[in-house]
Structures are given as structure tokens and as C-alpha cells.
């Protein structure tokens, strides 16, 4: 009496739900795309804006669309997808559903580097972004190096990352308080913002983000196994430490450049994978589906938040927290119920 054990029905409905989520995210991104291109302080009519998207006639209106609105939107998409993807990966490698991409020390490291450069130097945009990215990577490298002592054990890694974040966070404050200059602009940056992000920003963002996306998606299958115990993983022949390190590098790449470009808004990385899981109706989603969807949802979230931020000139970081805070509370509440 053999039975057909492939879960065709369950797999099918999961696939269709995944398609729905992708569709919705793409629609959201598309809507914000149109909204961002058409709407803004300069004031271009809907039809004229659409014309100008295709054809750059050198006018101020065309300049606004091609040099101000379009790069800002692209930056939002790149930052959002980087954060969504790296958030899903970091939650897998630290086995922490409340993990976010800055967990390895990237957030504070990149923020410190950016604040330092804004305070003491006047670097051109590309150089400043590169400096911030390197700062984030260095802080994370410190975390990973310390964590290697425990073979990158998830709990140890999380705690080390937290300490590194706290350290650099304190360093930022010390620097801002003791610098004898006007630092309000930096406080503004530290809330997270995509204002005045130009093609210079996009030029730095897109290679990092696209390579990170490719690497992450390529290894998605292996992430599925990482929820199991260390001993079980070793028994299955999985080189755990190596994989954690490789994925850690991808997370750091994506998060560092995202924070350097948009400020510390890594909260998106925490929330996006959970929204995907919620939408798919199950906690145990294969990372082959979770990763691309988290990237899409992350992009949709940041694009939408940025469009709303344009409307009120509120830093996008505040909107991310306003959105993410209630979601987080909801998630924590659900976990308690499911653990009971």
C-alpha cells in the first residue's frame, strides 16, 4: 500500500499565495514608481511627466524627473530590496526571528563612518558613500572575527553584534557632542532619509545590491537547513561555520551600503520577511521563496514610505518605525501565543 506522498495540494496553494504576494508587491512598487515620477514640489502634470520619462527634452521639468525623482525612487528600491533580503538571511543564520540586518554591527558602524565623514571631511558623494560602506563592513568584520571564537554560534554572534552596535552608537554620540560645530544636519541623517539621493548614490548602490541579491538567491536552498541544531547540521555534513560566514558576508555587503545610502533604517529588514510569512500563511517557508519575496516586499515598503515622506517631508526612517513598530508588537504577541 504505497501512497503518493508529494504534497501537490499544499505546494500548489503555497505557490499561488507566493504569486499573489509578488504581484501585490510589484503593483505597490509600480504605483509608487508612477507616483514618485509624477508627483513632487516642482509640479509636472501627469501626462507631461509620462512623456518626459521617455524623452528628455533638457527642460527643468525633464531634469526634475530624470535627475531628482527617478534616482530617488531607484535608491528606495535598491535599499529596500537589499534590506528585505539581508533581513531574511540574517534571521536564518542567527536563528532569531527578531533579527535584522544591522544585527552584526553594520548599522552603527556605517552610521558612525557617515557621521564622522560628514563632521570632519567634505567628501564628494561617491567617496562618502564608499567610506560609510567600508565603515559598516569593518564593524561587521569585527563582530564576525570575535564570533569565530565560538564558530559563529548564533547566540554569541547576536550578542557580539549588539555590543558592537552599542559601542559605535556611543561613539557617534560622543563625537557629535564633543565636536564644536553645528551638527543638526547629521542628526537629521541619522533618522534615515532618502532626500536628495541622486545618481551618484544609485551608482554606488546598484553593484553592491545586485551582487548581494544574486549571491543570496543562489544560496537560498542551504538556508533552509540552518534552523536545525548544530549537531544535526554537522551530522548532515553541512559546513555550518563556513556557510554562516559566507551568508554573513552577503548580509553585511547589502546592509552596509543600504545604511550608508539611506541612514539606519534596517528595521525594514526585520519586518519584510515576517510580512511574507504572514502573507503566505505559514512560518516554515523555503528560503527559495522567502528570499526573493522579502526583497520585493522590502522594496515596496521603502518605496511607499519614501513617497509618503515626500508628501510630508518627514524622514523616511520615522515612517519605517511607525510602520514597523506595530508590526513588531503584533509579531511578538503572536509568538507568545504560539509558544504557549
Amino acid at each position: 500500500m504505497s501512497r503518493h506522498l508529494v504534497d501537490t495540494w499544499a505546494d500548489f496553494s503555497l505557490t499561488s499565495r507566493a504569486v499573489w504576494i509578488s504581484g501585490l508587491s510589484l503593483v505597490a512598487i509600480g504605483a509608487t514608481l508612477i507616483g514618485s515620477l509624477v508627483w513632487g514640489d516642482y509640479g509636472v502634470s501627469f501626462s507631461h511627466a509620462l512623456e518626459l520619462v521617455a524623452y528628455d527634452d533638457g527642460s527643468d521639468a525633464a531634469f526634475v524627473i530624470h535627475e531628482i525623482r527617478f534616482p530617488r525612487l531607484l535608491a528606495a528600491m535598491l535599499v529596500g530590496s537589499a534590506l528585505g533580503l539581508s533581513g531574511a538571511i540574517v534571521q536564518a543564520i542567527t536563528r532569531n526571528p527578531l533579527g535584522e540586518p544591522g544585527l552584526l554591527g553594520v548599522t552603527a558602524g556605517a552610521s558612525f563612518a557617515m557621521a564622522f565623514s560628514m563632521t570632519f571631511f567634505s567628501l564628494p558623494t561617491s567617496a562618502e558613500l564608499a567610506f560609510g560602506t567600508v565603515g559598516g563592513i569593518s564593524a561587521a568584520a569585527l563582530t564576525l572575527a570575535i564570533g569565530m571564537k565560538a564558530r559563529l554560534d548564533p547566540l554569541y554572534l547576536t550578542l557580539t553584534g549588539m555590543s558592537v552596535n552599542l559601542f559605535f552608537g556611543a561613539a557617534i554620540i560622543v563625537m557629535l557632542v564633543s565636536a564644536n560645530i553645528e551638527v543638526n544636519g547629521i542628526y537629521y541623517w541619522l533618522t534615515g532619509s532618502l532626500v536628495n539621493r541622486t545618481w551618484d548614490h544609485v551608482a554606488i548602490l546598484w553593484p553592491w545590491v545586485v551582487s548581494g541579491l544574486i549571491l543570496g538567491l543562489f544560496g537560498a536552498g542551504r538556508l533552509d537547513a540552518l534552523i536545525l541544531d548544530e549537531d544535526v547540521l554537522a551530522s548532515l555534513g553541512i559546513r555550518v561555520t563556513t556557510w554562516r560566514l559566507l551568508f554573513g558576508v552577503v548580509v553585511v555587503m547589502l546592509a552596509a551600503v543600504a545604511v550608508a545610502a539611506a541612514g539606519p533604517i534596517t528595521f525594514i529588514g526585520l519586518v519584510a520577511p515576517h510580512i511574507v510569512r504572514f502573507g503566505l500563511g505559514t512560518q516554515g517557508v523555503s528560503h527559495r521563496i522567502l528570499l526573493p519575496l522579502s526583497a520585493l516586499v522590502g522594496a515596496a515598503l521603502v518605496c511607499a514610505a519614501d513617497l509618503a515622506a515626500k508628501w510630508q517631508e518627514v524622514p523616511v526612517g520615522i515612517l519605517c518605525v511607525l510602520l514597523g513598530g506595530p508590526v513588531l508588537v503584533y509579531l511578538v504577541g503572536r509568538r507568545e501565543v504560539s509558544d504557549a
Binding site: 537547513a225 534552523i227 536545525l228 541544531d229 551530522s235 548532515l236 555534513g237 512560518q283 516554515g284 523555503s286
Partner: peptide
């Protein structure tokens, strides 16, 4: 590691139950 894993399997005492995956997904690991 993989060659060894094809010959030798270890089950620890009380392994952590993974959250939210199906029986089939766990066995498939």
C-alpha cells in the same frame, strides 16, 4: 563532510523542534 554524512548519521538528545515546518520538510533535510 558530505561523504561522511552519507555513511554516518548522528541524532543528538532532544533536538530542538524546528518551528513551522512540516514532517515531510524535516525528513527531506
Amino acid at each position: 563532510p558530505k561523504s561522511l554524512a552519507r555513511r554516518l548519521a548522528f541524532l543528538p538528545q532532544s533536538p530542538t523542534t524546528p518551528q513551522g515546518i512540516s514532517v515531510r520538510q524535516l525528513v527531506a533535510h
